[in-house]
Design a protein around this nucleic acid. Structure first.
Lengths: 365, 365
DNA sequence: CGACGTGTGGCAAACGTTTGCCGCATGGTT
DNA sequence: AACCATGCGGCAAACGTTTGCCACACGTCG
């Protein structure tokens, strides 16, 4: 059979390429649930006896068509189970109604909060939520960003692992808001350095004079800032701050930290991450070191589980869900033109120390 | 100014509607990073001196064009930072390359595993991952499904809250795979009833004769199946099984359960959910009831934190990440035509009891 | 030397929606 | 009665890509 010259079912236009999946419009009455092909606006228009453009307006421009027509079109749409095609809309408008959340590791409970915060703001804005895990790899992050552009209206980057230059580049390609990363783009930062200093002060007030800091990945922007703030505070408070190295922020990494704690002979330790801190607690218990009697441990993030572990973890509570919410809010405002890029960045979100059972007065030497 | 009759910049086609965002193609040389408009295939074609169709083929049909042309087009694409438009592709092909994961509550750590499993399979298939939270509401679930159709190639439903009839309806509208729900569609089920029975046997072997079951939401399919399995096993093992009611599967719900445990005078309890079990543990401790000496508690799911809490929770380990992986695998195979809908369903995934510190021999009365 | 196959590139339709412009009809105003 | 404003609906282009068909230019074989 030849495609050329064969007539369409109603408009007589020639069709090339893949044949229509079905040349009949979705059946008008009866069981619509078995319709193999989703109804299009054309079907709706045909059923209600108006032009496609009118059908479109009836559904999206309240008041633009007469009440009677609108009712007829709506009824037809309802009957056919019509839902507009996202891609078609996106193609024309350039907006997909989708926002991506890019995280380095979906496994980390910290990023669960990011998921929640983003999700809750996106729901309000009727946006859909694309989730991308870059597995801590800057290359994967960049690939994701490339593919995302055009598929997505904007992206929230939590814990971006890209270097500044590449990040700036992509921020020019699509709307980006970062969390915990100050950049030539919009961002929300959480004052974890302030929290770390609070943790240090807490330990000092308990009589600790020799305190360790167990850091996270070198690519983490927050880690660098915390190190600096801690060093400054340690100088001011006149205590010894011992660098316990960089660690993979997972429970497995904690064993190494625990051993370093013992070796370095510190009586208290501030740990990059609750996850890491859980590992520290487990390993110290294994080695027979009693927390908090012999060593005090402070975590960071106050993730799910911090109050479950025994002793319950003293930790810097980070409003991460709120941060993600705000970041998404910023992004959406920018997408809707409510906010311009050069508006003042929001102030850092405050953190606070939650004192639980893993810290206590320093042991008498 | 009039649009009609005004000539386009190169093809002489009339243009109506929104003016082109910029009539020049993205600049050929120099700083491409500042390009305000993403490069299209037309730009690539123009730069390499071929037709759009040829450019398309050069990039997607290896061997269809001469090697020399392909190289030229690839170079141009590279130079312009070209990335194909997802929506445009989707519109024509009917495939978006996106799969949705629909969960009732992103807050629940159990669903985090679903996120991970889905994510890891989707990555292999080069699919993107849309995350939808229905907040335990069947209505929201249905709305999501409606909007999803056309925007998404298929959906994985973990813990669907829709009734059978509606679910069957939507399964006809778009490819759906469910987790823990046997349906006239593809599905992966986890043998939690078997696990619950294991838990019961464990308690019985420890000497417990009066055992409670604290259930989850009535809309949960798994909950119903577990109840049945437990009732049967209790009869067979000749022990008293006490129904402790239906509960919201969160920590907050645990207080109620704990009180019911005390009131009902059971010495052991099987709880719908680890989350709920955490709440039970906390409340029992608050009331001065010692676990496991006075009451034994078994959870379900083995979520993050089950080994952190004290006493560590004895629980039914559920391979939820694997279940999500398999469900996604089923879906992708179906999308790629590797699998037909009427193929045999995979067998239930086995569960096993992880015995930790929250269970012990029944107290002597 | 002509017929034919093969390799390569172009034309233009099609996917489903939105929207600028135009035309028609109706009702109100001078 | 002629004119104008307004309301409503239709036409058709446009978004960016893919792809069936065709056209052209070779080279080879009879």
């Amino acid at each position: 059979m030849v495609a050329i010259g064969c007539r369409g079912h109603e408009d007589g236009r020639r069709r090339v390429g893949r044949r229509r999946r079905s040349s009949r419009p979705a059946q008008a009455g009866g069981d619509i649930s078995a319709s193999p092909r989703p109804a299009t606006l054309r079907d709706v228009a045909a059923l209600s006896g108006v032009a496609v453009s009118t059908a479109s307006r009836a559904l999206t421009r309240p008041g633009r068509v007469s009440g009677e027509t609108e009712a007829r079109v709506r009824a037809a749409a309802e009957q056919l189970g019509y839902a507009p095609s996202g891609p078609a809309r996106a193609l024309l408008s350039g907006r997909t109604g989708v926002v991506a959340l890019v995280v380095p590791d979906v496994t980390n409970p910290f990023f669960f909060s990011a998921v929640r915060g983003t999700q809750s703001r996106l729901r309000q804005g009727r946006f859909a939520h694309l989730l991308v895990d870059t597995e801590e790899s800057p290359a994967a992050e960049e690939r994701a960003l490339r593919d995302l552009r055009g598929t997505v209206d904007g992206a929230v980057l939590a814990g971006a692992r890209l270097d500044d230059e590449r990040l700036a580049h992509w921020a020019r390609e699509l709307p980006i808001v970062t969390i915990n990363r100050s950049q030539p783009t919009d961002h929300v930062v959480v004052d974890t350095p302030g929290g770390a200093v609070q943790a240090l002060q807490h330990l000092v007030s308990l009589g600790h004079r020799r305190i360790g800091y167990a850091g996270g990945p070198p690519t983490s922007w927050s880690d660098g800032r915390r190190r600096a703030a801690l060093a400054e505070a340690a100088g001011r408070l006149d205590v010894d701050l011992v660098d316990l190295g960089s660690h993979v922020p997972r429970r497995e990494g904690g064993a190494l930290v625990a051993d370093a704690v013992v070796t370095a002979g510190v009586s208290g330790v501030v740990v990059f991450n609750d996850l890491l801190a859980f590992g520290v607690l487990a390993r110290l218990a294994e080695r027979g070191v009693v927390v908090p009697d012999e060593v005090s441990v402070v975590g960071c993030d106050d993730v799910f589980g911090a109050d479950l572990v025994r002793p319950a973890l003293t930790t810097v509570a980070v409003p991460s869900e709120r941060a993600a919410y705000l970041a998404t809010d910023l992004l959406l405002n920018r997408l809707e033109g409510t906010r311009t890029t050069d508006a003042a960045p929001p102030p850092p979100l405050p953190t606070h120390l939650v004192v639980r059972g893993s810290t206590a007065p320093a042991p008498r030497p």
